[in-house]
Design a protein around this nucleic acid. Structure first.
Lengths: 116, 116
DNA sequence: TTAATATTTCCATGATAATAGAAACATGAA
DNA sequence: TTCATGTTTCTATTATCATGGAAATATTAA
């Protein structure tokens, strides 16, 4: 992951409306939610949602799929995990904080059932 | 953690210069680095560093301490962990991704030596 | 106190972002 | 094709942020 990608992802999350959208979708899980439902849940006009979710998508944090008349958005959990790993990369030079060879345990690893 | 706090922390990180500073300090560990050394390592003027690191401090992501003529900055690892937890809170309604009662394992827990 | 070093504040400039109404566009049903 | 529904683009307004030189403000040593 390059720093520009991380910055874009963080910028996408660094705004209350978008952070609320993201957390809503994190909670919603892989199924996701359609645009109208998201807008209603957050309490914003469709145009505002469209503006913000486009940025989350451009940053790679959410993906979309068409389903009949609806467009469903869902979190890209891999991107979420990558971002977290980027933030904590080489923490304390890998010495004081973490066991030597262990990288940060992302939710991906935990989702897979391991105890990290 | 409130959403406004998380937004402030993310906004602080959502900028290349500040993200570079933060990662440098994450790598530096609890000792931290003094302002001049940080500015030199990143390659920015002192004024620019001061502007940016003040935002990281205001967001709670770094702390400072005076040491002789120098001011040392270091990562607030607890804040870092809290932010990550906030992003992944209640992921997939706690069902599909994570064991039911298990919250996100932050680096704090891992630092403590547990297997999360 | 004087001088040297370290850091921050002040300031002007240029650039980017948030909001939401209205209109356009896309999809599916009748 | 016609209509209803769902989503996006266009547009204007308002607000906020990044940068770095110069000056001001600590802090320490002599």
């Amino acid at each position: 992951m390059k720093i520009t990608d991380a910055t874009q992802a963080l910028a996408a999350l660094a705004q209350e409306t978008r952070l609320a959208i993201f957390r809503l979708l994190v909670e919603a899980g892989p199924e996701g939610m359609n645009a109208g439902a998201i807008a209603e849940a957050i309490g914003i006009p469709a145009a505002t949602l469209s503006f913000h979710i486009a940025q989350l998508a451009r940053a790679g944090l959410v993906t979309s799929r068409q389903e009949s008349r609806f467009i469903f958005y869902s979190t890209n959990f891999t991107a979420m995990d990558d971002l977290i790993a980027f933030l904590t990369d080489n923490c304390c030079q890998g010495g004081q904080c973490l066991p030597k060879t262990q990288k940060v345990a992302t939710t991906a690893k935990r989702r897979a059932g391991g105890a990290a």
